[in-house]
């Protein structure tokens, strides 16, 4: 059995959780590792729950373990981990999988510590089943590590966008197994006491946008973003920036794309004045099409892109905006 920890958003299971389900199902099918189960921690709204059931059915999940307890309403990693440990103890899976999100990695780190087993973060592939060897991203994706997982339960997170979510050959009707987790007061000490909703829209928009316009040092300064924001608007997209831009204080950190920022997977990414350092690439390589705008034809971003325009972004971007406005009129 493989158990996958799922996270939800307004549309049901999150995209990366569905990716993790597909990843786990394909491992289970190939290795004959038995049924696929999911675990959900804490309450969800009825409409989200309905959408989640649909996603789990499509992914071929046999059963959903749902930890229900009033004390799980505010997120507390240790409490979530206690619930997941309960599932591991009762179901004895061969593998426990989560999406490589901040929460996925956090909860797995707690679970692995509690079970005194290893944890592999950001796995992209299972190399062999016996002994279990996985390949995972290290150095922000610039290198990979083959890692052995010898414990009775292998705990691993799946790197974002390591695979596309694919439906199982046969849909299932997941059995729902509600349970009350064993929580202690200590599990609830480090929990969210309040959420301030302001920054949400921006960063959420960045990771789910179909078009992202990127801006790097080439923007030239805090006032160099006008045309880039205009292009973003015209394409109904989101602005993503390099670390140089955030560390110089030109734009807020939640717009940063890369190893220490957001990982994006838009249909089109248009990096303007971004050199394409490996740490930036780590966050944008999953874009389906990359159109680089850069004055240096040898910049890594240009050579790795699908398309490029060479020249000064402050001349090129306004011309694109004008052409877009002309054709959209």
């Amino acid at each position: 059995m493989i158990v996958v920890l799922v996270e939800t958003d307004r549309e049901g299971a999150t995209l990366v959780s569905r990716e993790a389900l597909t990843f786990a199902r394909e491992v289970a099918d190939r290795a004959g590792a038995g049924p696929l189960h999911a675990v959900l921690v804490g309450p969800v709204a009825d409409d989200v729950d309905a959408a989640l059931q649909g996603h789990l059915a499509e992914q071929g999940v046999a059963a959903l373990h749902h930890a229900v307890d009033d004390r799980l309403t505010a997120y507390a990693a240790a409490a979530a981990a206690a619930a997941v440990v309960d599932v591991v103890k009762t179901a004895s899976p061969r593998m426990l999988v989560a999406a490589g999100t901040p929460r996925g990695n956090e909860i797995l780190a707690h679970v692995a510590t509690r079970l005194q087993v290893a944890m592999a973060a950001n796995v992209v592939m299972v190399d062999s089943d016996d002994p279990l060897v996985v390949t995972r991203q290290v150095v922000g994706g610039a290198a990979q590590e083959e890692m052995r997982l010898d414990d009775p339960v292998a705990v691993l997170s799946v790197a974002g966008h390591a695979c596309d979510p694919r439906a199982a050959e046969a849909a299932t009707t997941p059995e729902r197994l509600e349970f009350t987790p064993t929580l202690t007061d200590a599990d609830l000490v480090a929990r969210v006491v309040r959420v301030e909703a302001e920054a949400v829209d921006d960063s959420a928009a960045l990771t789910s946008a179909r078009v992202v316009v990127g801006a790097g040092r080439g923007a030239g300064g805090p006032d160099g973003f006008k045309e880039l924001l205009e292009l973003t608007d015209l394409l109904d997209g989101a602005l993503g920036v390099s670390r140089v831009v955030t560390s110089l204080g030109w734009r807020p950190h939640h717009e940063q794309v890369g190893q220490t920022g957001s990982r994006i997977a838009p249909d089109v990414y248009i990096p303007c004045g971004i050199s394409g350092a490996i740490q930036h690439w780590a966050g944008c390589s999953s874009a389906k099409t990359i159109l680089a705008i850069n004055s240096d034809p040898d910049a890594p971003m240009v050579t790795k892109a699908h398309y490029a325009v060479i020249g000064d972004l402050h001349e090129i971007v306004p011309a694109i905006n004008e052409e877009l406005r002309r054709r959209m009129a």
Partner: peptide, 8 residues
């Protein structure tokens, strides 16, 4: 940063 905004 949390999935629904800044978490305190």
């Amino acid at each position: 940063d949390g999935p629904e905004g800044t978490e305190i």
